[in-house]
């Protein structure tokens, strides 16, 4: 069963009370042990793999040496034949036959190491994947656990302090009220500033036609006419 499904089942099955843990600590510990085991398994497999690959390489090197030796001795046997020394050629041929047997044996060893290495590589890959999967699941379990514990702590804190959890509507109303208050205060301050400054007063007076009026073409003309008189 997937871990999410397990968590869901646990939540549905009566673990609805805040603070009641969906996954008990024991479950988490077992899980962590499984991960540890898988890790040990993986470490061993990797060590084995290294050893097997080393042996495979060794066998490969020996094969190469044998091949070279055989080729060399075939040359020697040819030379003995050229010189008419049939007896020596036969002796060399016997040696070649032994070496060829050895080569066949060595090839078998090499093949067996190769197969072993392939199997181990697969095992390592599989274990690594499983480990990742376990870790992912553990994260989910631990997060669920942590959230529930945190939630319990928050609820307890509210219970122990005098404050209570506000309803969503009350919270919203208070926040909006405060935002409105701030807005109103800013608007009031702006008005006040405008009113207290000379500019505000002058504007008002001008609107009412009181006091010094702005220079218009007419008033300029009036002034010039008056000066000419």
């Amino acid at each position: 069963m997937s871990i999410l499904k397990k968590i869901m089942t646990a939540v549905r099955g009566g673990a609805r009370e805040i603070g009641e843990l969906v996954v008990d600590a024991n479950g988490t510990r077992i899980f962590e042990q499984e991960i540890k085991d898988a890790q040990t398994h993986l470490d061993r497999a990797k060590r084995d793999l290294t050893e097997v690959i080393a042996k495979q390489m060794q066998a490969g090197r020996q094969l190469e040496t044998l091949k070279k030796d055989i080729a060399e001795h075939e040359g020697f046997a040819g030379q003995a034949l050229e010189k008419g020394n049939e007896a020596l050629a036969l002796e060399i041929a016997e040696k070649i036959a032994t070496m060829e047997q050895e080569q066949a044996d060595q090839q078998e060893v090499h093949n067996s190491f190769s197969q072993h290495a392939t199997r181990l590589k697969e095992l390592v890959k599989k274990t690594e994947r499983q480990l990742k999967e376990y870790e992912r699941q553990l994260t989910m379990v631990k997060t669920t656990e942590s959230v529930q514990k945190a939630s319990a702590a928050i609820t307890n804190n509210f219970a122990s302090s005098k404050s209570k959890i506000l309803s969503a509507k009350d919270s919203l109303e208070r926040i909006k009220q405060r935002q409105q208050d701030t807005f109103d205060r800013l608007a009031a301050a702006e008005t006040l500033e405008e009113e207290s400054s000379d500019k505000g007063l002058q504007d008002k007076m001008r609107e009412a036609g009181i006091g010094e009026q702005a220079n218009s073409a007419n008033s300029v003309l009036e002034r010039i006419k008056a000066a000419k008189k």
């Binding site: 514990k149 319990a152 702590a153 928050i154 307890n156 804190n157 926040i175 405060r178 935002q179």
Partner: peptide, 14 residues
């Protein structure tokens, strides 16, 4: 906030 898991209560102005 004290408890099994450490929780911080952060309040933002406004």
């Amino acid at each position: 906030i004290p408890g099994d898991v450490d929780v911080l209560q952060i309040t933002v102005e406004d």
